[in-house]
Simulated assay, not measured.
Amino acid sequence: MILLASSSQSLCRRWRNALAGRYPLHQVSDRQALMLSLREHQPAVLFLDHSTQHFGPTRLVCRYIKSAPRTKFVILSSDPSPIAAVQFIRAGAKGYSGSVIAPSLICKAASVVIKGEIWIGRKLLPVILDEFVRAADTTLMTKETPPGYSPATNAFAGLSPREREITSLVASGQQNKFISSKLQISEKTVKAHLTTIFRKLGVDGRTQLALAVTGAHRQIALPHQL
């Protein structure tokens, strides 16, 4: 079951229309009903509207996430914040994006997180990765680390020069068409390189790849590590 949590009837209706017929759905509009549904129904996925903090501030929602490990949280906001996104994902959320997104992307988000992967809105991904990098850099500056250690070089180990180029472009949020044009290779070749890169780094997709390269895998538990 997928649980939809929002005080906005129009937003919930938009989500329901996108997901109807694909998954069993249940809707709540207040904090008490949300907590009851998490306990009694243990939904597979929760889409939670954090636009007005109707269900509580960020720290409280993070507690919800930690208290319901069987539910995959996707946090949506009309005013997305990279800092909040980092807090939610560290707490265990599986997705973060703007609340007004295309119906096809709602379905995509559901299918991705159900598989255990992390889903982040494409436009937000580069900014959120920057926040993870800053957090990782701060952590590394305050803890003893092995001489010469670098999250980026550690992640790049074992990749060919071409694979490193493609990995860097993917980590910056570029799509296959752009990478193909920039490197003057076919999109088919880009896809073949990505398949090899995913295998070498032990990741399941572009988002995991970008997070791993930036060192964010030291800040959150990636799906293949759970």
Rank of each mutant, 00 (worst) to 15 (best):
L4V: 05
S6E: 06
S7F: 08
S8C: 09
N17R: 13
Y23T: 05
P24W: 06
L36T: 09
S37P: 05
P43C: 07
P43S: 00
V45M: 03
V45G: 09
L46D: 01
F47N: 07
F47L: 08
D49A: 10
S51G: 12
T52S: 14
Q53H: 07
H54A: 15
F55H: 05
G56I: 00
G56N: 00
R59S: 13
V61M: 08
R63M: 09
R63V: 00
I65W: 10
K66D: 02
S67V: 00
S67E: 14
R70N: 12
R70Y: 04
R70M: 03
V74C: 12
I75N: 07
S77L: 01
D79W: 13
D79Q: 14
S81I: 04
P82C: 08
Q87E: 15
F88G: 07
I89G: 05
R90Q: 12
A91F: 06
G92C: 11
Y96W: 07
S99T: 03
V100N: 11
A102I: 03
P103L: 06
C107S: 02
K108H: 08
K108T: 02
A110Q: 02
A110W: 01
A110I: 03
V113C: 02
I114W: 00
W119A: 04
W119I: 08
R122Y: 01
K123F: 00
L124Y: 00
L124M: 07
P126C: 02
I128P: 00
I128Q: 06
E131W: 05
V133W: 04
D137Q: 13
T138R: 15
T139L: 14
M141D: 05
K143F: 09
K143S: 11
K143P: 04
P146A: 15
P147N: 03
G148H: 04
Y149I: 03
S150F: 08
P151A: 12
A152R: 14
A155C: 05
S160C: 07
P161E: 01
E163T: 11
R164N: 08
E165S: 15
Q174A: 14
Q175S: 05
N176H: 12
K177E: 13
K177D: 12
F178S: 10
I179H: 01
K182L: 14
L183E: 05
I185Q: 05
V190M: 08
H193E: 15
H193P: 13
H193Q: 15
L201E: 02
G202T: 08
G202A: 04
V203P: 05
D204V: 07
G205S: 04
R206C: 10
T207G: 09
Q208K: 10
A210P: 09
A210Y: 08
L211K: 11
L211S: 08
A212F: 10
V213T: 10
T214P: 06
G215R: 01
Q219H: 12
P223E: 02
P223I: 02
H224C: 08
H224F: 12
H224S: 15
Q225P: 06
